[in-house]
Design a protein around this nucleic acid. Structure first.
Length: 257
DNA sequence: ATGACTGCCTCTGGCAGA
């Protein structure tokens, strides 16, 4: 089964591209980030027409996540990241699909550094780690996928110096991500591409796509029970070059049945 | 180089993104 993640940067603006990608690549599970839609504006009927059922957690103007499943309803297990009652950002949604616990995350960007947004990012990552320890304890196949907004290694960006002052590459951001890997989670794309050079995001500005100035920030983290079943992982890079594309490309991991 | 582009909601300019 294929589990995919796609930061779509606005579900209203991206709907034709999104439906096209679903029909062409047909992932079993598709986790979406930055739907930028309130719950009432989510186009669930469009997905049902092509055989996908969905759950979603939206908010006005920005953030927002959703989980789509081919031919079955995702069984929701968590809405919103626990650990801070004052955090009302729609950045976390979790469900069981086909025997796999799937979490869809949109980790805070954190710019500018320093500042309250960066503090929020680091606090969110701490809460994520706590919650993922609970997922780990389930001892079942689990995939925590989405836009992590962390460039983990220097070979995960076209030019490290270009992003050196960015929240995505700060030592504290990397340390927080490294703790997840230290806990035993497998970074699917990173593990299969140790030499780097694989991007999942290209800025709209400065001809970044045309120059291949990208970086890897969309990650698929697997519990041991899921990692043991990993047969492939990749980036649907071609979709970044289409008309009215998101600035992210879809990423995916294939698990054996 | 305080640049660049895009989406959203709309105070059609300001915010957010990365």
């Amino acid at each position: 089964m294929r589990i995919a993640s796609f930061n779509i940067n606005g579900i209203k603006a991206r709907l034709p591209r999104l439906l096209e990608w679903l029909e062409e690549t047909r992932p079993k599970v598709a986790c979406l980030q930055e739907i930028k839609s309130q719950d009432g504006g989510f186009p669930v009927a469009e997905f049902e027409k092509i055989g996908y059922q969905a759950i979603w957690h939206g908010q006005k103007s920005f953030n927002g996540v959703a989980i789509l499943a081919d031919g079955e309803a995702p069984v929701e297990t968590q809405r919103g990241l626990p650990g801070d009652d004052d955090d009302d950002h729609a950045r976390y949604l979790e469900a069981d699909v086909a025997g796999v616990r799937v979490a869809c995350i949109y980790l805070p960007n954190g710019n500018p550094v320093p500042g309250p947004k960066f503090d929020y990012k680091l606090a969110w990552m701490g809460r994520l780690r706590s919650h993922m320890r609970g997922l780990w304890a389930l001892e079942k196949p689990c995939a925590v996928v989405g836009d992590y907004n962390v460039i983990m290694r220097d070979n995960d960006v076209w030019a490290p110096q270009a992003m050196a002052d960015d929240a995505l590459m700060q030592p504290q951001s990397r340390d927080s991500y490294a703790r997840l890997l230290g806990d035993g989670w497998t970074d699917a794309l990173g593990t299969l591409n140790p030499r780097g050079g694989v991007w999942t995001y290209w800025d709209y500005q400065a001809g970044a796509w045309q120059r291949d100035h990208g970086f890897r920030i969309d990650h698929l983290l697997l519990s041991p029970e899921a990692a043991d079943r990993m047969v492939a992982a990749g980036v649907d890079k071609e979709y970044r070059g289409r008309e009215k594309a998101s600035d992210h490309a879809p990423v995916w991991v294939e698990l054996s049945e």
